[in-house]
Design a protein around this nucleic acid. Structure first.
Lengths: 128, 128
DNA sequence: TCAATACTTTACGTTGACGTAAAGGTCATA
DNA sequence: TATGACCTTTACGTCAACGTAAAGTATTGA
């Protein structure tokens, strides 16, 4: 049952401690304390991971908070669950849209790179 | 050879005119003018499309500007081209990372949804 | 014992991406 | 001719996501 300090996690995830504390201010993590000092559990570490993944996907902290809270539906009632399901479906729509976008962008990048390589080639043979 | 007004594009892409003008302020588009009025070409429209796609992918306007500029390597010299190629590769790395992220998130969402559905089912049969 | 290292809180500052007036120009049509 | 429906510029406001001191506490090793 490992535990982590804030600077350990900041190094592991390449963010500042300020950033991690900011996530706590916004209610995305709540590590327990030993005295004043924050002690992060593996579960806390996972939450951080999810937050940063969301960030890479362009989600706001608020979005990430909601999504992460979805993963712990322990004490929710029926209405909650129904709300969750629709929220999940919305998220899924956005993500599949992103998948499309990424596909397009990758194609564009490939084309752009090929163009560059071509341009270099002709520059190498054609000494005009 | 069609052309578009700013409000046409703002409606088509579901953004405000302010947003489009903001992109111009930041140097991402430069429509020609008829008097004072902005006239957008199909090429300008495509740039807007690319910007908004970048936005959905969590790119900054600056990032999008660079990427879009990649697509027009007409007048670039060799060093430029080499820089472009590495930039493209960096972008591609990020995107494949995003693909991974999305895959993970979709998996998580599926699981979360299944959990919700299960919870609803047991709630329907088990009237405790 | 004292200096370094790692932690803390409080609080103001900054940057990006627009929002939101305010004030005005142009053109069609009732 | 005046009332909309568009367009424009200028400029201050806002919100999220942190950055950046400043000032203090706690532990550890020379």
């Amino acid at each position: 049952m490992r535990e982590y300090s804030i600077s350990q996690l900041s190094k592991e995830f390449q963010v500042t401690t300020r950033t991690i504390r900011h996530y706590e201010e916004r209610g995305l993590v709540a590590p327990r304390r030993r005295g004043q000092t924050r002690i992060y559990s593996p579960a806390d570490r996972t939450r951080l991971k999810l937050i940063l993944r969301g960030k890479r996907l362009g989600l706001s902290l608020e979005d990430s908070r909601e999504i992460i809270d979805m993963y712990e539906p322990g004490k929710s009632n029926i209405d909650q669950l129904k709300k969750l399901i629709t929220a999940i479906q919305v998220q899924r729509l956005q993500l599949t849209q992103q998948l499309d976008d990424i596909g397009s962008l990758l194609k564009d990048l490939n084309q752009a790179e090929a163009d560059c390589v071509d341009a270099l080639k002709s520059n190498r043979t054609d000494h005009s």
